[in-house]
Simulated scan of single mutants.
Amino acid sequence: MKKHLQFAAVVMSMVLVTGCGFHLRSSPSLPDDVNTVVIESARAHAPLARALNKRLNVYGLNRVDVSDSASSSQNINIYLLPEKLERQLLSVYPSGQVAEYELIYVVRYRVQFPGKEAVLAQFEVVRDYQDDPDQVLAKSRELDLMLSEMRDEAADIMIRRLSSQATAAPALSTNQP
């Protein structure tokens, strides 16, 4: 009897999950002949470029250096524009000191797929940050960790967006006037 109840519970949960439209996400689908990425940045040694390099292997993509990119026209070219970190005040202590910020990490980049025009994209990663003036050292380390996590999340977002940007980019015109 217990097995029947467990089976019924599993079947009911599957029916509920599929009924609401939920489906598992697959890995990003890129054109089959494209699996290498060239990353360029407006700033040398940009932290976002390093985060993006770390995440490429997770998604099964290979990184190619800019100097080697001329050897293949089948690369995805990502050019990172300068990133921006904004702080917005959320709350203050009764003494007037800032208690909480909203950190907004703005990422802008241009991506170009083989045979297509470049697409400019932008998005934001937002976090709340509580500031404690009594623990300045700990809070500065926490802020550094939070920024690192925001960059990692931004890198994941960029890679996941590649499949939609591949279909959105218009093909380069071969007819020259």
Results as ranks from 00 to 15, higher is better:
Gln88Met: 10
Leu89Ala: 02
Leu89Asn: 13
Leu89Gln: 08
Leu90Ser: 06
Leu90Arg: 12
Val92Ala: 07
Tyr93Trp: 13
Tyr93His: 13
Tyr93Leu: 09
Tyr93Asp: 07
Ser95Ala: 10
Ser95Ile: 04
Ser95Thr: 14
Ser95Tyr: 03
Gly96Val: 09
Gly96Asn: 10
Gly96His: 08
Val98Asn: 04
Ala99Tyr: 01
Ala99Thr: 01
Ala99Asn: 10
Glu100Lys: 15
Glu100Gly: 08
Glu102Cys: 05
Glu102Arg: 15
Glu102Thr: 12
Leu103Val: 04
Ile104Lys: 10
Ile104Asp: 04
Ile104Phe: 05
Val106Tyr: 00
Val106Met: 10
Val107His: 02
Val107Gly: 03
Arg108His: 11
Arg108Val: 10
Tyr109Phe: 14
Arg110Leu: 03
Arg110Val: 15
Arg110Thr: 09
Gln112Phe: 02
Gln112Met: 12
Gln112Val: 01
Gln112Leu: 08
Lys116Tyr: 07
Lys116Ala: 12
Lys116Asn: 09
Glu117Gly: 09
Glu117Ala: 11
Ala118Leu: 03
Val119Glu: 11
Leu120Met: 13
Ala121Val: 09
Phe123Trp: 04
Glu124Gln: 14
Glu124Asn: 13
Val125Gln: 14
Arg127Ile: 06
Arg127Asp: 12
Asp128Asn: 15
Asp128Tyr: 07
Asp128Cys: 08
Asp128Arg: 13
Asp128Ala: 13
Asp128Glu: 15
Asp128Ile: 10
Tyr129Ala: 08
Tyr129Arg: 01
Gln130Ile: 09
Gln130Met: 10
Pro133Phe: 12
Asp134Leu: 15
Gln135Pro: 00
